[in-house]
Every structure is written in C-alpha cells, then in structure tokens.
C-alpha cells in the first residue's frame, strides 16, 4: 500500500531535499478561514499538512495550541466538520498529504470504524494521536493500518533503544521525532542533539524521520532539515495566526496572508538545507 505520504517522500528524495510539514488547527479561528489557510499552504511551500483536531484538554500542548483549539471549538468545530474541511481541501488538491493530529477521545466517541471510513473517504492520509502509545495499538493504530491510513508515531528523547522497536513496529508514513521533553511551543531543540537522535532512530527504521517541537525560524528549519527527513512547524504558525486576529479573536483580512508569508519564509529555510544523509 502506497499512500500520498509515501509518494511525497519519494518525490522529495528525487528532488534532493527534506520535507516541510506545517500544522494548523482545524476551525481556527473559524472553519471558512481555516479552509482558506490550508488551501494556501501547498502554494506557500508546505509539503505535508497536519490538521489539528481540537480537543478541550490537550495535555501535550502549550498555551498557543491550547488557545487555538479553544478558538476552534468556540467557532463550532467538531470532528465531523474537520473531516468536511479535509474533503473541501481535497476537492482542489489531490496530491498534498494530509495528516490529522490530536487526541483519542473525540475519535473514540465518533466511533473508530466509522471515523476510519469517513477519514479515508474525505482524503486523510495519516493520523498522529498523542495519547495512544504502542501499548494501546489495538484501539486505533491497527484498525487504521487495515483501513489504509498511516499511523504516525511520536518518538521522544525518552524513547530509548530498548523501546524504539516497539514504537516503530506499527508506524508507517514517517516517524515524528519530538525533539524536546515538553509540550508544544515550549523550548527550542539543540540541533546537534537532534542530529544524534535522528541518526539513532534511523538505525532502527527505513522510514523518513521528521522533527518537530521548538522550530520557529527559517534558520532553525534549515538546521533541522539538514539532519532530518523533514521539519515540522506548528506553534509559530498558530502564533502568527493568533496575532492577526481582531480583539474578539475573529479573522481579519491579514490572517490568511500572515500564515502563508511565514510558511513561505520557513519553506525557504527548509529548501536551503543540504539534504539529510539517508
């Protein structure tokens, strides 16, 4: 089974560069604006798009992404509407991989089997579910694999060599290396430590390894992209989005461009990086 994610990494390998992965919360600050933002991302240089599924209690997220989720929920975003958003994007873009990222409870309540059918038909390619470690693979990871969706696992600085094989066992698409022990948006990663960690993971898998948490500037994106298969940016985009809103938290004429402009400059950072060694 080849997914859009596999195809995209194969293309990037041909082009000799790493992937730029962007994160945006579905429905932030409202569903119409968020569709416009997501549509603008590939043009601005995003290779893979992660779409956050808002949740009231995002235990691994810092204040920026917590606030983004609450804005989205206030605007009436539900899991069903997030899937509608994916479908609307997919109507105009058949190639860009889309990954849904979030927490398990909304999916569990939606119903795992129904969710997988609906997500696949909407055009979702992969899932990142923060609170489903390999110990809980039977919940969603294994059904997702059977449904033809990539289940992208997080590896962290605390995932040692003994544990890595278990973490990687049912992972597909790519491995998401969380470069710090901490929540999103908290600290910057030390790129030499990241390089060592990526090399360690690469000894256990042939999958691409993307690195996220703590990347905010084009220079940081370039540094990470030169050691990893991809760089993930989330909080910095959410912050620039938040900064473009009016006093009531509503979108303004600047919102879509503010995000797209930052994506463009970060993408230049990624593209300036020498390709990571395989």
């Amino acid at each position: 089974m080849t997914t859009r994610i596999d195809t995209r990494f194969a293309e990037l390998k041909q082009q000799g560069r790493s992937a730029f992965v962007t994160f945006i919360m579905a429905g932030d600050p409202d569903l119409v604006t968020s569709l416009e933002i997501i549509k603008a991302l590939p043009q601005a240089g995003a290779d893979i798009i992660e779409i956050g599924m808002p949740f009231t209690d995002p235990m691994a997220d810092g204040p920026s992404i917590q606030a983004a989720g609450l804005r989205a929920l206030k605007a009436g975003t539900t899991l069903k509407k997030t899937l509608d958003l994916v479908r609307a994007f997919r109507n105009g873009d058949a190639a860009t991989p889309l990954v849904l990222m979030g927490y398990y409870n909304p999916i569990f309540i939606y119903g795992v089997d129904k969710f997988l059918v609906d997500a696949k038909s909407a055009g979702v390619d992969g899932l990142i579910i923060v609170d489903l470690p390999p110990e809980e693979d039977e919940e969603l990871c294994l059904p997702a694999m059977r449904a033809g969706l990539n289940f992208i696992r997080l590896a962290t600085p605390t995932t040692d060599d003994k544990r890595l094989p278990a973490v990687l066992a049912n992972t597909s698409g790519f491995v998401y290396y969380v470069s710090i022990t901490g929540i999103t948006g908290a600290a910057s990663a030390d790129s030499s430590k990241v390089a060592a960690a990526v090399a360690r993971i690469k000894r256990h898998t042939t999958l691409p390894v993307c690195v996220g948490f703590g990347i905010r500037t084009p220079d940081q994106a370039r540094a990470i992209a030169s050691t990893a298969s991809g760089a993930v940016v989330g909080t910095a985009l959410v912050d620039v989005l938040s900064g473009s809103l009016d006093a009531e938290g509503r979108a303004t004429s600047k919102t879509v461009n503010a995000v797209a402009d930052l994506v463009r400059s970060l993408a230049q950072g990624v593209r300036a990086a020498p390709q990571a060694a395989e």
């Binding site: 235990m59 691994a60 398990y104 923060v130 609170d131 489903l132 470690p133 390999p134 110990e135 809980e136 696992r153 997080l154 590896a155 962290t156 600085p157 605390t158 995932t159 040692d160 544990r163 973490v167 969380v178 022990t181 901490g182």
Partner: peptide, 12 residues
C-alpha cells in the same frame, strides 16, 4: 483503565 499517555511519559 489502560495507559493513554504521550510517548514521552510511557518509559517512565
């Protein structure tokens, strides 16, 4: 029950 936590916490 179960263990629904982020990977960072799982080893601990």
């Amino acid at each position: 029950g179960g263990r629904f936590v982020a990977e960072t916490l799982m080893p601990l």
